[in-house]
């Protein structure tokens, strides 16, 4: 019994301290060094934060360059698959066109009526948000985290917590800012929590990322009646987000009330970071 314990001790000691011809450091030293770096990173000291920020900027650039072959192959695959689908899509579009032609006259009438109503209400047609456009440079999906890295940081006026839009719809929020880059936590990430309001009844809830494509709606009122026409907007209750940013449509899947996001988390290429609000529509 004691012999086998001795053998275990010798083998572990040897594994921890032995350095071969090609091993410059022993495992023991490197484990201690890793633990020290981990502790240092958790202290939140300003010099460490600055150092990490510089390190992040450097590694993100290298990562963006090294990911170019993967991006190129993905783009090529998309290009060919899109061409294959074009024939079927064309047929579908023809039938849609016919039905749309029928509705054209109806829409013309509605458009005129809408114009008149807008004149009466004096609604601003411009975007209500002042945004800065950024390019997604890294889109690495870990099995547990869903986030993307943008090519703009504090130098472009981006700050922590700012909402990020894709085609005018909420895609996530800024969770890390460096000088030349920043990280967006996507809505479907496990750590994402957004207070939302559901139209048209005005029920409030929390949008919880589940790691899957469609995040869950939690903390709904007891008498909430789900309807497939329910739309989800930011409520602005957290004091971080502006209210009224479109998020998605309510759907019922896997016995859960979920939100089908208007922005596709897998298709982000360019996004708009909301830096300010021009007009407070809620106050109008």
């Amino acid at each position: 019994m004691s012999t086998s314990r001795d053998d275990f001790g010798i083998a572990i000691r040897s594994a921890l301290l032995q350095r071969g011809a090609k091993q410059k450091f022993s495992l023991f030293v490197l484990i201690l060094l890793s633990a020290f770096i981990f502790a240092l990173d958790n202290t939140n000291l300003k010099p460490i934060k600055i150092l990490r920020s510089i390190l992040n900027d450097g590694v993100y650039r290298i990562s963006a360059i090294s990911s170019s072959p993967i991006k190129f192959s993905s783009a090529t695959k998309n290009f060919f698959s899109n061409h294959i689908l074009v024939y079927n899509e064309n047929k579908k579009l023809r039938s849609e066109l016919n039905s749309l032609k029928e509705r054209k006259f109806e829409n013309l009438y509605l458009e005129t009526e809408n114009k008149k109503l807008q004149e009466i209400l004096n609604i601003e047609k411009e975007s209500v948000f002042q945004t800065t456009t950024a390019k997604v440079i890294i889109d690495k999906n870990s099995p547990y985290l869903n986030s993307v890295v943008l090519n703009k940081g504090t130098s472009a006026g981006i700050k922590l917590g700012m909402p990020v839009l894709s085609n005018g719809y909420l895609a996530g929020r800024i969770v890390e800012v460096n000088f030349f880059s920043s990280r967006v936590l996507l809505l479907n990430d496990l750590n994402s929590r957004i207070p939302v309001v559901i139209s048209p009844n005005g029920s409030q809830a929390i949008l919880l990322g589940s790691g899957k494509k469609k995040p869950n709606l939690e903390y709904l009122p007891e008498n909430f009646e789900m309807n497939e026409t329910n739309l989800v907007f930011t409520s602005g209750k957290d004091g971080v987000f502006y209210d009224g940013i479109s998020i998605g449509q309510v759907v019922f899947e896997d016995d859960k009330i979920k939100v089908d996001l208007f922005s596709d988390p897998n298709q982000l290429l360019f996004v708009n970071v909301v830096v300010d609000k021009i007009i407070d529509i809620g106050g109008k």
Binding site: F38, I138, K140
Partner: peptide, 20 residues
């Protein structure tokens, strides 16, 4: 750790224990 925005040293420790 840097690419996935994890606390520095998390993956390093994990990998080193696999090596051990």
């Amino acid at each position: 750790d840097v690419v996935l925005n994890l606390p520095l040293g998390t993956s390093a420790l994990s990998y080193l224990f696999v090596s051990l």
